[in-house]
Design a protein around this nucleic acid. Structure first.
Lengths: 240, 240
DNA sequence: AGATTTTTTTACAAAATTATTACAAAAATA
DNA sequence: TATTTTTGTAATAATTTTGTAAAAAAATCT
């Protein structure tokens, strides 16, 4: 299934092989593509040629230190950079941020937390892009199903042409459902795909979010015409 | 009702009695069955013979360490494994994940969080199972028999092109019958395949469900043309 | 035909699932 | 930091589905 939007690519810059392996393993399990660089020079090279969607950057690196790498990359690319630092290098952390890093995480880190950070940063950068109105390849990505129209670049929904203001979570649920309109999606799958790796909460959270979406896109929430319940299974977007 | 999925069984692998006791107490309170193993060798043995739905596995164990246990179990079983680690064993944690563990939690852990994690991991493993039932091959899976058409993705039935709204139970019965159209299926088999092995209810429940299906798909329920009774045997879907 | 077995039909209660609401926690923003 | 917004949780209400039982109807057998 999947492939709603194409896979995001993440560049891992670290000279410690075991750490790189762990990161690659977990990132790919989560559905990202990965690139590797073991030193600073290679990192800058790969970053500029391959243009990854996010960079994980260790501060301690051979040939060129992480801070310099960060600065270099930033001078030519607007990619989110997540710094990896050894503990108690507080000064470095801050310097890193000044240099344009978007976030940092201290080693040893929990894989779970890292995944959450990555996801959050990717999302932020998507939003930023649209704010600048820089439509990468020019064309606007949209999903249209009946009266529902989702503008994936603007994070904007329209129903019968009228703009609806949705929160990110609401938008993502709607997007996932709409990308497979007509197909019933279970709550389990929604939690897994929208809430993701880091989520351990109650499954009924989905119901409440659906309720909130309905409150915004349906004229009569008791008789929804767009986002339909398939009792005993899940929810789907009507497509006929 | 729904005795289809009985209680989930969780195998606890830890050599510290107090911890095991706490886990057992809380898990059973939450409605899980529990199994215990105090060392690695026993763990592998119980895991393979009893096939629990999820395994809680401490990394520090007598006889065989947790990582090895994890690897061993994984080689033969596809059960979710949740590793328990003492704090600051970050490397171990991650190694555990590389070895195929699905998640980890550090000691001392909050019971509440552990329960949430267990729930989430069970949920994920259910998704995998489901995914096999539903067509992942891109095309929508359908069963067509005469005027009857079942869309397995939408949980939707059509008769002569007209959409019929069925409940899941009704849909499942129809699906089972339709998947072997022309063949008479006994009530016993239907109960076992649709209601599940552990169903203790009355066999006439099948009749009522059939009646309800007929009420929806047949024009004249007294003279069914799709779902036919074979008196003294069972029911079948006409396919000629 | 009458008795017996089996199935159909109906109505009702119980069970399961979903919707709704209010509130608290967390996150984002000013 | 304070304020606002978003999100998750939990409790309750509303709704739908399902199982059961009992009676009616139909088929089968003597």
């Amino acid at each position: 299934m999947e492939e709603m939007d194409d896979k995001k690519t993440i560049l891992i810059v670290d000279d410690e092989k075991p750490i790189v392996d762990i990161l690659v393993y977990n990132l790919e399990k989560e559905g990202y593509n990965t690139l590797e660089a073991n030193d600073g020079v290679t990192a800058v090279e790969i970053a500029t040629t391959k243009k990854p969607d996010l960079i994980l950057l260790d501060i301690m690196l051979p040939k060129m230190d992480g801070l310099t790498v960060c600065k270099k990359i930033r001078s030519s690319l607007n990619v989110p950079i997540l710094m990896l630092t050894a503990k108690d290098e507080e000064i470095d952390k801050i310097l890193g941020l000044e240099l344009g890093a978007d976030d940092y995480i201290t080693k040893p880190f929990s894989v779970r937390e890292l995944m959450a950070r990555i996801k959050a940063n990717l999302r932020k950068s998507e939003i930023k892009e649209n704010a600048n109105n820089i439509g990468e390849d020019g064309k606007t990505k949209k999903i249209v199903v009946g009266p529902l129209e989702l503008d994936l670049d603007k994070f904007e929904a329209k129903v019968d042409g009228e703009v609806i203001d949705l929160t990110i979570r609401e938008f993502e649920v709607l997007k996932f459902l709409a990308s497979q309109a007509g197909q019933v999606i279970t709550r389990e799958v929604l939690l897994e795909k929208v809430w993701g790796y880091e989520y351990y909460g109650d499954i009924r959270t989905v119901d409440v979010t659906v309720r909130r979406i309905r409150g915004k896109i349906e004229k009569d929430t008791a008789n929804p015409r767009i986002l339909i319940t398939k009792r005993g299974v899940g929810y789907y977007i009507r497509n006929n």
